[in-house]
Design a binder for these strands. Structure first.
Lengths: 277, 277
DNA sequence: CGACACCTTGAAGAGGTTCAAGAAATGTGG
DNA sequence: CCACATTTCTTGAACCTCTTCAAGGTGTCG
């Protein structure tokens, strides 16, 4: 009763009070980097200082000097085609990745080959934290649509975060946030039934998309029913059936991957087991 | 097939190659702090440098100077009685806690009051990482037996880790390890059946206890069937029945909370779905 | 020794899975 | 640009695992 909602977008708690300019979040071309290299006008200098996603993946309240130094963290950007892997279980860990555009899933695999989606990541979110402990990644990250990520060599991050306190704190918060997010997933998998899981999943997704300037109620799913099922610990048929049920109950409108939330309150009640009051 | 075992004790990967002296791990009185305060001979100076658990919660290869400085991280120790909470959901976050003796569970709560055990922690493991992101804890930590923890104010940790690179790296690894651990729990909850879950749980527990100098096969469970069930996403009756089944199959010997593993290979096969070959 | 918490076991029931078939979208090559 | 192959999604029916409800047994602690 008194518990703050752990499950639903711990992300949002990090968003500053003042509104973020998320216009153009879906369009990488809105980038307005001012410094162009003399050599090749088409290869823009990668710079966090001008990135409209900075509020999502970098700390706030940096001085001009600090901002300039942080620009050096992001050495390069990398494009990842839909279906391609950003990193894979067992690969050497060197960098964290901040998503600029696109949508990813991360998944782990059992010894006997079953795999389990552990999360879906979108613009401004950071991937690769799993690799720090052993210097090797322990999960796969696969793009669900054409994507671009900022490659942030972890050694550089550690170096800089020794000198810029707010960056150090930020790195710690990003890791802690991931721990709290996973706590929420564990709660979902350990104690919720199918309808509750799907409702929680949709609310979480809608909230995160909304924070990025998209509609609160209209969402395009980037993943298959099977991937949703894997994430939620359900079979794809169960996911499909539950979508159909929500549709019958006028809670959602579902057309393949296009989902419109008709009744957010109802979804919340389902998650909180108040659906039948 | 090619995947390294994520689930089973990522902890162990951090343990150095040379054997750890874990004698007396279960007995806090084996502590041999040399510096006693003049004022009160009974209040020993808290010092990591003399702690036999140092290998578990502090980085290796520190110089004498660095070791001395790290002694200051642990300001105080705190005793927690069985059943008492170390911290609680919503409480202000100030410190991380390293377990010296005893056994804890951490759990999260849904809005409607269901709760979910997210982990069991033992000597040398660090708790409280969930609190960093919002400055408030998002789970409860409850002692399952009388315990003692080292209180490590997080601001001090951040300060020192700016200056001691290996400490910085260590903090990052501890957080990353927790992320990887939770990935394993998600895998377990999302894709395993009851027998697989319990088998994985027991193997993990045995491995961690073994790393601390206890028997590989003989374990005393510190938690109830209900707590195991919560952690594994099962009802206590299912846990009990599964114990009975393992017992019938001569895989375990179970007497209440005393469990003896008779056939480790069989447990592994159950986890890997090879039980019926 | 009695109260209480914890554990075991049985039987009935529900929720989710499995298997199967068909429909709808998507992508590909001619 | 259309036809065909492929992937993805939906729906039904039988089945199975785990849950629920219930009762009795075991252990522990004041």
């Amino acid at each position: 009763m008194t518990a703050p909602p752990i499950l639903l977008s711990p992300m949002l708690k990090m968003v500053p009070a003042q509104p973020i300019d998320t216009s153009g979040l879906s369009n990488p071309l809105h980038m307005s980097d001012s410094k162009l290299t003399a050599i090749n006008p088409h290869s823009m200098k990668v710079a966090c200082s001008n990135c409209n996603l900075r509020e999502l993946c970098m700390p706030l309240g940096l001085s001009e000097q600090e901002l300039e130094r942080i620009d050096d963290v992001v050495a390069i950007r990398r494009k990842v085609k839909r279906g391609a892997t950003l990193f894979r279980n067992g690969e050497k860990f060197t960098s964290l990745f901040a998503i600029r555009t696109g949508f990813f899933k991360t998944s782990v695999v059992t010894d006997d080959g079953r795999d389990q989606v552990t999360g879906f990541q979108m613009a401004g979110e950071v991937m690769g934290l799993d690799g720090i402990v052993t210097d090797h990644h322990s999960c796969d990250a696969i793009a669900l649509e054409d994507a671009e990520v900022c490659v942030m060599p972890f050694e550089r991050i550690e170096e800089l975060s020794r000198e810029i306190n707010s960056l150090q704190r930020h790195v710690h918060k990003i890791m802690s946030r991931e721990i709290v997010r996973e706590n929420g997933v564990i709660l979902l998998l350990g104690s919720m039934r199918a309808e509750e899981r799907l409702a929680a999943f949709l609310l979480n997704l809608a909230q995160r998309l909304h924070a990025r300037g998209f509609s609160q109620s209209d969402l395009i799913l980037r993943m298959t029913r099977e991937e949703i099922g894997s994430y939620l610990g359900l079979k794809l048929e169960t996911v499909s059936r539950t979508f159909s049920k929500f549709s019958e109950d006028k809670v959602l409108e579902v057309k393949q991957r296009h989902v419109r939330i008709l009744n957010t309150e109802a979804l919340r009640d389902i998650v909180n087991n108040k659906a039948c009051l």
